[in-house]
């Protein structure tokens, strides 16, 4: 239940800079989605956040304080790759959890095992990928965590269990927990998260509240009478993130709600102007697309 503040975090492995000057503020009680293509630095960021990897520079603070062992009691981490023991069964994993965490709740663990239809006597060796993911989730939520760091928590799960995990996250957030999660399933992040950051090549290229990003970013599309469109005046416009012309169609990806650009295109002689809402996937794909000016726009603010 802490505000997590990541400041100027960098991490290099030899010459490879995995995380490059990341600064992110994760408000207490929010669900924060970390998005990015493979290799963007999400997992490394999580590891530095939890002290599992030593940052090359920068720092992470929980409510203004560095991470201390007592905080670990209420933090749960579901890593991207399962850390379960092949030769142990579900019940033994929960026993391990009980011995490690004072907050472990036996009744809660049982309820979660039932919710995911897991057999406590089944050995991990005999479990499917989905069952392994589910067991890792059961272990995490059995301690009523206040801070959750979830790296691809729904991978390998069927749609019913994916929804069950999202609802566990939402219930935890409703009780005030702070959740940081990564997922390639942007639709899930769109439901569960209130804030996101997009990482690319180790850098934050876009960050904000999901609803604000959606309100802010639109496509303004104009159809002109001829292919000769006087776009020069638009090139320097700070509200325009992308400008694509294909024949008589001019498509602007805009920020600040397009602030009057639909009217501008009308004045420029467009016969038809359309404003298209963007969902999170569109916004994400625009941000990581080559040639996007997003990074510049963010820096210019």
């Amino acid at each position: 239940m802490s505000t997590i503040s990541i400041q100027h975090l960098s991490k290099s492995y030899g010459k490879f800079l995995a995380v490059d000057d990341v600064t992110v503020e994760i408000p207490s009680g929010s669900v924060f989605g970390l998005l990015g293509p493979n290799g963007a630095g999400k997992t490394t960021t999580f590891k530095c956040l939890l002290g599992l990897a030593r940052a090359s520079s920068g720092e992470v603070r929980f409510d203004g304080k560095p991470l201390t062992p007592d905080l670990f009691e209420s933090i749960t981490y579901v890593p991207e790759r399962s850390v379960l023991y092949e030769w142990m069964n579900g019940a033994e994993h929960l026993e391990m959890q009980r011995r490690t965490f004072k907050r472990y709740d036996t009744a809660r663990a049982k309820q979660l095992m039932d919710r995911f239809q897991l057999d406590p006597r089944k050995r991990v060796r005999a479990m499917s990928k989905g069952m392994r993911s589910a067991l890792a989730i059961v272990m995490s939520f059995s301690i009523h965590p206040e801070t959750l760091v979830l790296d691809e928590p729904t991978s390998g799960l069927d749609p019913v269990n994916q929804r069950a995990v999202l609802n566990l996250i939402i219930e935890a957030a409703a009780q005030g927990a702070t959740v940081v999660l990564s997922s390639h399933q942007i639709g899930q992040v769109e439901r569960a998260a209130d804030h996101i950051a997009v990482l690319k090549d180790g850098k934050v290229i876009l960050a904000g509240a999901v609803d604000d990003l959606k309100s802010d970013r639109k496509i303004v599309e104009g159809i002109f009478p001829s292919e000769t469109i006087a776009v020069d005046g638009l090139r320097r416009d700070a509200r325009i993130e992308r400008l694509d012309q294909s024949g008589r169609i001019l498509r602007l990806t805009v920020t600040a709600n397009g602030g009057g650009l639909a009217e501008t295109l009308s004045t420029m002689g467009a016969q038809s102007v359309r404003i298209v809402d963007l969902n999170l996937e569109d916004i994400f794909l625009n941000a990581v697309a080559p040639g996007s000016q997003t990074a510049d726009v963010v820096e210019a603010r």
């Binding site: 009680g29 929010s30 669900v31 929804r163 999202l166 609802n167 939402i170 219930e171 957030a173 409703a174 009780q175 439901r191 569960a192 998260a193 209130d194 999901v210 609803d211």
Partner: peptide, 17 residues
């Protein structure tokens, strides 16, 4: 807020807003 967030599977802060 909590009930509606869980029913709709959406973020509770969004419902609160």
């Amino acid at each position: 807020v909590k009930q509606l967030a869980v029913d709709l599977t959406v973020n509770p802060n969004t419902v609160a807003r």
